[in-house]
Write a protein that binds this DNA or RNA. Sequence first.
DNA 1: ACTATCACG
DNA 2: ACGTACGTGATAGTA
Length: 378
Amino acid sequence: MSQDFARRIAGLEQTIWRDVGHEFNIGSPKQLGEVLFEKLQLPGGKKGKTGAYGTDASILEQVSPLHPVPARVLEWRQLTKLKSTYADALDDNIDSKTGRVHTSFALAATATGRFSSSEPNIQNIPIRTEEGRKIRRAFVAEPGHLLLSADYSQIELRLAAHVADIPELNAAFQQGVDIHALTASEVFGVPLEKMDPQTRRRAKAINFGIIYGISAFGLGNQIGVPQSEAAEYIRAYFERFPAIRAYMERIKTDARRTGYVETIFGRKCFIPGIRDPNPARRAGAERQAINAPLQGSAADIIKRAMGRLPAALERAGLKARMLLQVHDELLFEAPEAEVEATAQLVKDIMEGACAPRCEVSVPLVVETGWARSWDQAH
DNA sequence: ACTATCACG
DNA sequence: ACGTACGTGATAGTA
């Protein structure tokens, strides 16, 4: 794969240099900015306090209709990323004793209680594009075994419905309805049976925004509408689900008073900037205060499941081993003959991981899949 | 050591 | 009256 990427990278490099008229380092944001916005005269302008041109993917996408080079640079970036960060680095990290890649998990490194993963990071293995999936396809089970993936469905949005106590959303999750379609229907006034993909996609972005501590700027940026229009969507959302606004105000007030917020199990997440006199920094801290109980509670729940699973597997006489955690997903290696029984046990333990210390007002749903490769297990 | 970029949930 | 969606880590270039 590394060699295939290298060949294609070299081809793109030649084409880009030919189109520009001279050689330069495509990987240098400084040189690339000068080529695109001075030599080729593409519209872009400066940004940032360093005075450099911005050349990130969203900017290159905006100018790609005007010239062939930006799209080729995007493809060059994708392939160099996959080659250096994944194909080459994963190979370099194969343990000579075990023949496997062994990550390091940090259990007390993040502000919210999530794990982090390093040397190599296996929590950011590609999946969103077809080229990237080729990397994930290289993660395979031993002969006679399968990889079993089990992931919580929309756990943070479910926890938002729980902690904010939103009657309509709680009911929707209990009935198993399409939550983004429901949001779209309520916010945009489109009947469920007339839902279209674009409207549903916008509602999905709003739901992500809720989890992140929504802002009109961020939402508008995400779905490509003016900030004023995004503000209107947010207003409509709060009008339809007033409990969410009440929760957000309450969490900010509590955080300002105590300096921290809590997960559903009472673990504290400290919010250092919550009293910052600078309005921008304070607003950032307020978004953290809204997000941390959701991301942090989800982290608590999966860790409770992880703590129980090895003994539960042993007790059931199953040989599966837990290999990886990716925030809302656990990956196991199981003997082929045991994979269905293992999936059922894993699902039950993960879905019941809140008890007995907490009861949540929404069902937690875990989806499982299995195959030889991690890619196919999804 | 810092910045820009991009991979993931 | 400010800059922004939340949380991470790796790589390459720049200063």
